[in-house]
């Protein structure tokens, strides 16, 4: 099984008519994802590579029965796109776009929480989600992941997610679902949301968690692992040597006021019983050791 998406998930692409949207939407369709519609207020009735364009998410949902949407809209339009999708009643929103203002993210996170509790948002500024062999929404290269299980992956970083998928594939280890939650200050889906879902998924037997400096999401995840998880976790935290006060590429990756250091996060995870690697390769090896004992 997989979490959040599966082979039956029908996906709308908001921004399918743009260059990024048409490129990745095309790759996702090629992978086998059910890419059923795109939206554009002025291009309804046209199509992108055979995928019909509707004027709104609501119309696209009604016509196709889609339950998920993937947003490739430029940053200024992301808030509107997320709210449109939520108001239409979509269940799962994946926002790939980077550079969304933090105040917008805080606003639509709370709006969804208050008014649309059944809608899950992943991102923004994330690589998306892939359940190998079933569904790939976003910008992950599908062929670097081996399908099946028993490992679930959750990560704040795009390229390190690919690295993790690839290292596991090299070791012939399959993945149930790989979720990139993104590197922004207010991610729609948290580590804990994913850990909870992996804990409940019978096919996922172990979890790989990749974090980075900034905020306290990893510490909160460690607390969850300690108190609520029976499945083993291997982890890696990027940014051990990052200087304080500097954004390391991601808006959320910053050590400030002595908080959010990699050392504190690694300690919290080790204390929770997770195996923590010093680099992605080591974390992959630790996961291979865990899988060998399952």
């Amino acid at each position: 099984m997989s979490i959040f998406v599966d082979e039956n998930t029908k996906v709308i692409y908001q921004g399918l008519t743009g260059s990024q949207g048409s490129y990745y939407g095309g790759l996702n369709a090629e992978y086998g994802t059910q890419v059923v519609a795109g939206t554009h207020p002025k291009k309804a009735g046209t199509d992108v590579g055979g995928v019909p364009i509707y004027a709104s998410v609501a119309e696209a949902m009604e016509a196709t029965g889609a339950t998920a949407t993937c947003i490739f809209i430029p940053a200024p339009g992301v808030q509107g796109a997320v709210l449109e999708a939520a108001e239409a009643g979509i269940e799962f929103i994946v926002a790939i776009t980077e550079g969304v203002p933090a105040h917008d993210e805080a606003y639509f996170f709370n709006k969804l929480k208050n008014d649309f509790p059944n809608t899950r948002l992943l991102g923004p500024n994330c690589p998306g989600i892939i359940s190998p062999g079933k569904c790939n929404i976003g910008i992950t290269a599908g062929h670097i992941a081996k399908e099946g299980g028993p490992v679930g992956i959750v990560s704040r970083s795009g390229t390190l997610t690919y690295q993790a998928l690839y290292e596991l594939k090299q070791k012939d280890i399959g993945v149930t679902t790989c979720v990139g939650i993104g590197g922004d200050p207010v991610p729609g889906t948290s580590f804990i949301d994913c850990l909870e879902a992996f804990e409940a998924d019978p096919d996922t037997k172990a979890v790989m968690m990749i974090g980075e400096i900034g905020g306290s999401a990893e510490e909160e995840a460690a607390d969850f692992i300690k108190n609520h998880m029976s499945k083993p976790v291997a982890s890696y935290i990027a940014g051990v040597t990052a200087p304080a006060g500097k954004n390391m590429g991601h808006a959320g990756a910053i050590v400030s006021g002595g908080k959010g250091t990699a050392a504190a996060k690694m300690e919290a995870l080790e204390d929770a019983g997770a195996k923590v690697g010093n680099n992605p390769t080591e974390a992959g090896e630790l996961m291979a050791e865990i899988v060998a004992t399952l």
Partner: peptide, 17 residues
């Protein structure tokens, strides 16, 4: 030089390690 924020951070770490 690395591609992606996470990998770049990780590269800096590994050089130190």
């Amino acid at each position: 030089i690395a591609n992606g924020a996470g990998l770049a951070m990780s590269t800096v770490d590994v050089v130190n390690q």
